[in-house]
């Protein structure tokens, strides 16, 4: 008989049990021969991931923290002088510069409007899906799936074409409806620029919300709903007291994801700026950092703003991370 424990430090007889509580659904106690603190096996298996994350994320993060305390003037940009230590100057600028606060406020407003619209429309569509005949439901979910699958840049080119001032189908349609939109340029005015951006972002984001919420809605018990209806609960009451509590976990996760996605809509804004938007009036945090750092080589201030975005994101997602961590058997 082959030695089962040949590559294990712990002998197969009388295996030590895991010294910490074992959570539901996991089989720690079934793995006696490998559950040991002394083995270097697991660390070797983790090594490639750890090295990749250190190289591509941890090291740049450290550098970015250092850079946020440095100044990059003209001499540094020409490569003739090392960066200069400026203490908290970049952070002072971040806190006091009205231009930066305009961008932050604009980003938060954009994020709020887009995430709310996406959640409301997505939840409404998911509810509608439960009321459709099978054929219509398949048609709707297929078209949502196509919209979701579109690569972001391919979607942007199509929307640019739809909103094209001369030959765009949207201007044509509005003109047919009796409004004079011939040759109307959508991207030059910042407000209408953000309207276009919102249409695109919502169109792209809604399918994910619909599918997530719809699958949660199918978990709502029909019997309970019927019983409540018999007891005289109206439509809103049933939604508020039965449906909502059931779908709440999914709803809150999806909301958090939408918020952090809509806080950093780099691709869409960057693309629309290139297609005719005025960058200085339409920058959101992502494009602002890009312009500051990559275009103007002000790495110090760009790093400080980027760290602000990082911290904001981690604060928003901390509850979500905690719940995922609890769900994991860690």
């Amino acid at each position: 008989m082959p030695n089962v424990a040949s590559d294990s430090v712990v002998p197969p007889a009388a295996p030590p049990r895991a010294p910490y509580p074992v959570h539901l659904g996991h089989r720690i106690e079934d793995l006696p021969t490998r559950a040991t603190r002394r083995s270097i096996g697991p660390y070797l298996l983790l090594l490639p991931v750890i090295i990749a994350l250190i190289l591509a994320l941890a090291y740049p993060l450290g550098r970015q923290i250092i850079m946020s305390f440095q100044g990059f003037g003209l001499a540094q940009q020409l490569g003739t002088a090392p960066p200069e230590w400026v203490g908290f100057a970049n952070y002072r600028t971040l806190l006091t510069d009205p231009a930066i606060w305009t961008v932050i406020a604009r980003s938060i407003a954009f994020c709020f409007v887009n995430a709310s619209l996406t959640m409301v429309i997505g939840t409404a569509l998911a509810t509608l899906m439960t009321k459709l005949s099978t054929g219509v439901r398949i048609a709707l979910s297929t078209s949502l799936l196509f919209a979701w699958a579109m690569p972001v840049i391919a979607a942007m080119t199509v929307w640019e074409w739809l909103f094209n001032s001369e030959y765009g189908v949207i201007n044509w349609l509005l003109t047919q409806l009796g409004l004079d939109y011939t040759g109307h340029s959508w991207l030059t005015n910042p407000l209408s620029f953000f309207f276009v951006a919102t249409v695109i972002v919502v169109w792209m984001s809604v399918p994910f919300v619909v599918f997530s919420v719809y699958s949660a809605l199918t978990q709502v018990s029909e019997e309970v709903l019927e019983a409540a209806a018999l007891d005289g609960a109206g439509g809103w009451q049933r939604f508020r007291h039965i449906v909502l509590p059931t779908i709440m976990p999914v709803l809150s996760v999806v909301t958090v994801l939408q918020i952090i996605w809509d806080l950093r809509v780099f691709t869409q804004i960057f693309y629309l700026q290139g297609a005719g938007g005025l960058a200085s009036k339409t920058d959101l945090l992502g494009t602002f950092i890009y312009r500051l750092g990559i275009s103007q080589s002000d790495y110090g201030l760009a790093s400080a703003v980027a760290l602000f975005v990082l911290i904001l994101t981690l604060v928003i997602t901390s509850g979500y991370v905690r719940s995922l961590f609890k769900e994991a058997d860690a």
């Binding site: 994350l53 994320l57 780099f266 890009y290 750092g293 790495y299 990082l310 991370v321």
Partner: peptide, 16 residues
């Protein structure tokens, strides 16, 4: 790490 947006690190990744 999953939560970190690309925009929050691309400046220093570029420099690196």
């Amino acid at each position: 790490v999953q939560m970190i947006p690309a925009e929050a690190l691309f400046i220093s990744q570029y420099k690196m």
